[in-house]
């Protein structure tokens, strides 16, 4: 994969308005993918990512203020339970094994499907919008926590 397409991928994956705006300011709207990457750009892309990891970390650990900020305070849990209580350091979340047939849901599922299942079942909460910032932040934290894990899609 070329440097240019790597940048495009990261932008698509974490397609946050803020991230695109920052990239646009530094690289110019028409040449964002045409010029050699600058260290400043990489630093900013990483900062955008780590900010989502931070938000996801707080949501995952039951931080009420962050849940309110992202509009999911009434949804994530109604039992006092937080994700991290069963998944310290996001262990046993196995983002590297998705997508797969998920036995509990009895369907072919993505990590976001499973996050919503955990919210709804063990936490007795309410499913959140799979495209919401809260969901993307949770996904960012879980995948970041498992950095270095080898992809094993489909594994039970």
């Amino acid at each position: 994969m070329t440097t240019h397409s790597k940048i495009r991928c990261s932008l698509r994956r974490f397609g946050l308005v803020g991230g695109i705006a920052i990239a646009a300011v530094f690289a110019g709207p028409t040449s964002a993918h045409k010029d050699p990457v600058k260290q400043e750009q990489l630093k900013l892309y990483q900062e955008v990512f780590m900010e989502e990891v931070r938000k996801g970390d707080l949501l995952f650990h039951g931080d009420q203020k962050m849940a309110e900020q992202l509009g999911v305070a009434d949804d994530l849990s109604k039992t006092g339970m937080a994700c991290a209580m069963c998944h310290p350091m996001a262990s046993d979340t196995h983002p590297q094994s998705f997508p797969k047939f998920q036995a509990q849901i009895a369907k072919f599922a993505t990590l976001r499907d499973m996050i919503n299942w955990c919210i709804e079942k063990p936490n007795q909460g309410v499913k959140i919008d799979p495209e919401s910032e809260a969901m993307k932040a949770l996904e960012a934290y879980i995948t970041w926590s498992n950095t270095g894990s080898v992809l094993q899609p489909g594994k039970f």
Binding site: V53, R54, K55, D57, L58, H61, D63, A84, M89, A90, S91, D92, H94, Q96, S97, W144, S145, N146, T147, G148, S149, V150, Q152, K155, F156
Partner: peptide
């Protein structure tokens, strides 16, 4: 082996947000 919670091998790291 599939009954073991470490059947899916994982590399994990400590959280960060509580130290910020």
């Amino acid at each position: 082996p599939e009954d073991h919670d470490k059947h899916v091998s994982e590399v994990i790291r400590p959280r960060i947000a509580d130290n910020m």
